[in-house]
Structure formats: structure tokens, C-alpha cells
Design a protein around this nucleic acid. Structure first.
Lengths: 304, 304
DNA sequence: TACAACAATCGAATTAACCAATCAGGACGG
DNA sequence: CCGTCCTGATTGGTTAATTCGATTGTTGTA
């Protein structure tokens, strides 16, 4: 049996992959460039395969190198999790928890969530990042984040998820317009191009269109907004209607407007809110307790 | 950030956990007892927690120690998988594959399977263990086995599975008895205590009773057999009837007997055959290809 | 042509890993 | 009660591995 590679050398490899430069990677690891260089060579010998192609000036990770980086990342993350678990004496709700959240959920949930966590688990230190689903999944994969709050259904790749709750969509429009509309809303009652949506980077757009059975694309205005507050302002200016999730409404996004929420078409006009985490984690129990806290704050808790 | 524990020390811990004795563990690791002893102490310092309680004569793993062992096992298994993956240059179907299988499947599948694997993937070296479901799951958990072929449905704990195929049950009895019976068999046609089953350690018993809707337990003879061949012999001696899986019949278990297979009651009188593996593995692709080979050999391939 | 940037290599100094031998406590037997 | 055996811990010296600063060789650029 050949000797296992050392975690130290694996971490050198990760740093090199991240910085794409021996000097900067060495700095990040607090070692000299020569140490890191020989560490990598050492690793290549132990694994008996070439991880990076050198062309005298620079280098490139080989396909195998990339694969090894992937696996090394998982191993080191596991080791870190173990270290933290042991050092906190098994107290699961302690230490840093790096949370990623999409922008159509974050502003309407994270305030309440932080407060609740702070009260109930003061030793749990929540670090929050807000980004698109795709970027968050990448960060999760890279071990930069621990858990994500996403809207489902979604391709979460190799990760695992719990469905925390349902968040109904409402079709929001000016009260003067709403007076002429029957619920649940048949979109034929609306003029063409009268429905405004978010930029397509936001998964909310697709979820709303699918869940609310808005099949007639001529009703959609080609202008897209960058966030929910813009949508609300546009609707309040009587430009048209838009889909707003219940949790945003609960947080008062319609306050000081003349907008009213109507029930859209679709038997289940809602999105699911889920917690996504790496399949390889061993902090499932922490994440589970965390999931329960989140689910309690959602319009409809479906976490069993 | 504190220093990560070394894989070497973690492996010492695993050996100690396995052997429950410093000397034997040290031997297994090919190091001296003092090396292993200080390795463990080192680990405890790094993790800043007590892993074993010493009472001058012997020792005991603390609860935390047991937890750390669990996680260490996963980390080391991952590292071994990475090492092997790199050394085989990414060739997935190469090197050892440790397979566990239950005794009501093994004898009727593994012969054909070994032959097929040997032909198609000659570099894949199949190591086979046969045991009960519970023991196999324990071995999988301990990293002693890589994949299990089990009968489903089954509580596979934290592991993952693919359903490979269906294996119908047949009610087997002597042809003289069968002549008086209508298919699918209504058990009322059979005398009390005329159905023989395996010992309850075998999951086949429960699966057959459930799938074939044998609700009347008075039909079951309290004597239990240790393997399918015994059941066949007993049925052939006209002691009664028994459930035999199709794959055993296909492999000729009824040859040279006067037994005939009848269709039992139950809409889906069958068990599922599944491949079970650790959720934390990174050899999924290997296992998947392997799964396809197995599924091809089953009475009814349901692997999508 | 000189220079800056980069990764590899070298040699010395430091550190850690390791082992054999020994120690100390408890169990067992005579 | 004393000696022996078995346990894991400790010690001290040796060896092997790690690390660093300095240097080398190559490449691209001013």
C-alpha cells in the first residue's frame, strides 16, 4: 500500500489552483515558494501522476490535476469540519456558518433569521453572502460556503437539500387595475406586455412563470428589473403587474404603495424554499437544526 | 487557524479503535508502540479534546473519540480513493473493488458477474464478501467494503443506492401438490404449516412474505432453513412449499428435483435488487458502470 | 541588452518522526 | 508477599523530512 498524500501538500495544491501562481500561493500558505514547489512535486510523486504541465514560464493544471483538486478540496473540508467539531466539544451550534442566499429571498428572511439565531444560538456566527444561484453553487462546491438558501426546484448538482417551506406567488398590481380583475387571475384579462419580471439571472422569473402557468409570453414586457423593489415601484407607477413572493409581501414590500396582491393562476402558484449543502459534509446535524429555524420563518413550513 | 491533524495520526486512531490495544494497533500500522502512543496524544492536542479515557491499565474511547473515529474513517477513505484514482490515471475500472453480497443473491449472481467483469474490465479486481445485510452495512460503514448488492426495500442508513432490477418470487412445491393448486396461488388452498422460510436473519423471508401477501401466519412452518438449497430439498421431500427467487431458479436450483414454480399472490410478488454505496464516495462513476453490468444479469433490469 | 517575473534547484539549518529501552501501574500466580 | 507479565507512557538518541534563503535557468518585456 502506497503512502497517503499529506493534507499539507493537498492544501498547497488547492492554494496553487486558486492563485495560479507559486509565489502568491506560497504566501497564502505562509510558506516559502520553494517549499510549496517541492510540496507539489512531492504530491505528484506520491500520486504517481502529473498534476500540472510546466512550460518553463508558467503552468497549467492537467485534467487529472483538476480532478485531484476537486477531491482534495473535499478531503480538506472534511478534515476542517472534523477539527472544528472536536474543538467545539461537539457543540453543533457553535463557530462559523457560512450561508449563501439568493437576492429574492435574502432581504425578506435574513434579518429575522439572524436575530433568531443570535438569540437562540449566540455562539453560532453567521456569515452571509448574497449572489445568484449559479455563483452560490460554485462557492459551495469550492468550500467557500457551507449552506445555501435557494428557491426550488433547481438543479443542485451533486449536493443535497431539504425543502424548508412553500412561498406562494402573488400577482401584484395597482388597486385601480385590480378592481377589474377576477381571481384567480386569467391572464387574458391583462393587456399585452403588462407583466414585468426580473432579469433572467434570477431564478424567480422562471419559477413564477412556471408555477403561475403564465404560458402566453406576449403578456410579458421585455423590460426586466434587477430587484423586487424596482418591480414594485414599476407596478405602483401603473406600468403593469408583476409576481411578488409572499415572504416579500409579509415583510412589507407593498407598504406605502397602492398595490394589491391577487391570486395568480396555477394550482400551486408558489416556489419552494430549500437548504442546500454538500453531500460530503459531516455537519448535517448542525445544518438540520439551522434548517428548522429557517423553516419556522417561512410563510408555509413544509420541513418534516 | 489551527493546524489540521495528519492523516497518519488519524490512521493510528483508526487502528487503535479497531484493535483496542496499543501494541497490536502499532503492529498493524508497522510502527512502534511508542510512535502510535505519541501520535494519539498529538492528535488529542491538535483537536484540543480528549479522545480516549485512560485508567492506568487500559483505555476507553470517549463519545467524542468515537465521533472523531467516524469522521476520520471518512477522511481516510476519501484520501485512499483519491490516491487510487490518481494512480490509475483516472481509469475508473481498475484496481480493487470490494463487494459485499447477501447469501440469497450471491450464489446465483456472482459467478456470472465475476466472469463478465473479468472479460470486460480485466483490471478491475473484484473482492467478494458474503454476509447478512446488517453485517454488510457495518462493513460498508467501516470502509471495509466499497459496494453492497442487497435486496430492497431496506433501511440503508446514511448510504445511497441504485435500484438495479426486479427479482420475482415463485412459490415452489412438489409437482404432485402443484397439480391441485390454482395460480396465482391463494394460500387457503395450502394446509397449515406448509410454507417453509429461511431464518429470520435473511431479509428474503420478510421480503417474500410482504411481496407475496402471505398474511396468514398459520400457513408458515416454524422450522426455518439456513439457505435456499435446504428449502429446495425440503420442498422436494414433499414437506411443503417455499418461496424461491427467480434468479435462483434461472440458475438451476430446481434442476434434478420434482419441484415446479407457481405464481404467488401479490401484484408485485418480487424483491428489488439494489447496489448500495457510501454517500461520501467519490467513485460513483466506477460504481455506476459496475451497477450497469449487474443490472444486465438480473431477471428484470430496472436501472434507468 | 538589461531587467523583471517565474518556477526549479541546492545546501544548510531546523524540526519532527521514529525506535529501542525503560518506567510505572495493575493483575495474576505461587 | 514477591516476582512476572501485560498494559500504556516516557525518555533520549538517531534518522528522516521539512523548510528556508539564495541561486539558477528560462521566458517575456522594456
Amino acid at each position: 500500500m502506497s503512502k497517503l498524500p499529506s493534507l499539507k501538500n493537498l492544501s498547497y495544491l488547492l492554494a496553487l489552483h486558486q492563485h495560479q501562481n507559486f509565489n502568491r500561493a506560497a504566501q497564502a500558505c505562509h510558506v516559502s515558494q520553494s517549499t510549496l514547489s517541492s510540496g507539489i512535486q512531492n504530491l505528484e510523486e506520491q500520486l504517481e501522476c502529473q498534476l500540472i504541465e510546466r512550460d518553463h514560464k508558467s503552468f497549467l493544471f492537467t485534467a487529472m490535476g483538476e480532478q485531484v483538486v476537486e477531491q482534495a478540496r473535499q478531503i480538506i473540508t472534511s478534515a476542517e469540519e472534523m477539527l472544528h467539531y472536536a474543538q467545539s466539544q461537539g457543540n453543533q451550534m457553535e463557530g462559523p456558518l457560512r450561508l449563501g442566499c439568493i437576492p429574492t429571498i435574502g432581504p425578506f428572511l435574513l434579518g429575522k433569521l439572524s436575530k433568531r439565531i443570535q438569540e437562540k444560538y449566540p455562539k453560532l456566527q453567521l456569515n452571509i453572502a448574497e449572489d445568484t444561484t449559479a455563483n452560490l453553487l460554485q462557492a459551495l462546491r469550492n468550500g467557500e460556503l457551507d449552506v445555501l438558501i435557494l428557491a426550488l426546484p433547481m438543479d443542485i448538482q451533486g449536493n443535497q437539500q431539504w425543502v424548508l417551506g412553500r412561498d406562494p406567488f402573488k400577482l401584484v398590481m395597482h388597486k385601480s387595475l385590480a378592481a377589474t380583475i377576477n381571481e384567480p387571475v386569467d391572464y387574458d384579462q391583462l393587456p399585452d406586455r403588462s407583466i414585468f419580471l426580473l432579469e433572467k439571472e434570477h431564478c424567480l422569473t422562471g419559477h413564477a412563470v412556471a408555477a403561475c402557468q403564465l404560458s402566453d409570453s406576449s403578456k410579458i414586457n421585455p423590460f426586466t428589473a434587477t430587484n423586487l423593489h424596482s418591480l414594485v415601484q414599476m407596478a405602483d407607477a401603473r406600468l403593469g403587474a408583476t409576481f411578488i413572493p409572499q415572504m416579500a409581501i409579509d415583510q412589507g414590500i407593498l407598504k406605502d404603495t397602492d398595490l394589491v396582491p391577487l391570486q395568480p393562476s396555477g394550482r400551486e402558484a408558489s416556489r419552494d424554499i430549500g437548504l442546500v449543502y454538500r453531500a460530503t459534509t459531516n455537519r448535517r446535524q448542525t445544518f438540520r437544526k439551522f434548517a428548522e429555524e429557517i423553516a419556522d420563518l417561512l410563510p408555509e413550513n413544509t420541513l418534516k
